[in-house]
């Protein structure tokens, strides 16, 4: 159950990043007013905030059932999910060096949770 909740939380956080990216790109391309005003007009921006709230709430639910040091390593999965979404949904070119960098970040998060 706790593992399902972890995945739900990571899915919401990843969706929030995707929606924020789409909203920022659309706001940058749209006309009228400063960037912030154009951003607030994007429905995706408000969906992103809803996903952030849901992601945070479900993560608190995880921490309620699991020690921080046990839950912490799962955060590295979030980085992998965001990379996959960037590559396959946003069609960004993610090369070997960038993947290696993300792998090191995940390893570093794993090491930090050993303490």
């Amino acid at each position: 159950m706790t593992y399902v909740l972890i995945f739900v939380s990571l899915a919401f956080t990843t969706a929030a990043q995707l929606l924020q990216k789409l909203a920022a790109d659309r706001a940058a391309r749209s006309a009228g007013g400063v960037f912030m005003i154009r951003l607030l007009r994007q429905s995706r921006f408000w969906w992103a905030i809803a996903c952030l709230a849901a992601g945070t709430a479900s993560w608190l639910g995880v921490l309620f059932r699991m020690e921080v040091s046990k839950a912490f390593p799962f955060l590295s999965l979030g980085f992998v999910l965001v990379m996959l979404v960037s590559r396959f949904h946003l069609h960004e070119s993610v090369g070997a060096v960038r993947w290696l960098g993300v792998a090191l970040i995940c390893a570093g998060i794993g090491l930090m949770s050993l303490a």
């Binding site: 960038r98 960098g101 970040i105 390893a107 570093g108 998060i109 794993g110 090491l111 930090m112 949770s113």
Partner: peptide, 15 residues
């Protein structure tokens, strides 16, 4: 872990 994370970020920004 911190050192490994920093190394990873260096690679990502370099990419």
């Amino acid at each position: 872990g911190i050192a490994v994370i920093v190394l990873g970020v260096v690679l990502v920004t370099w990419s």
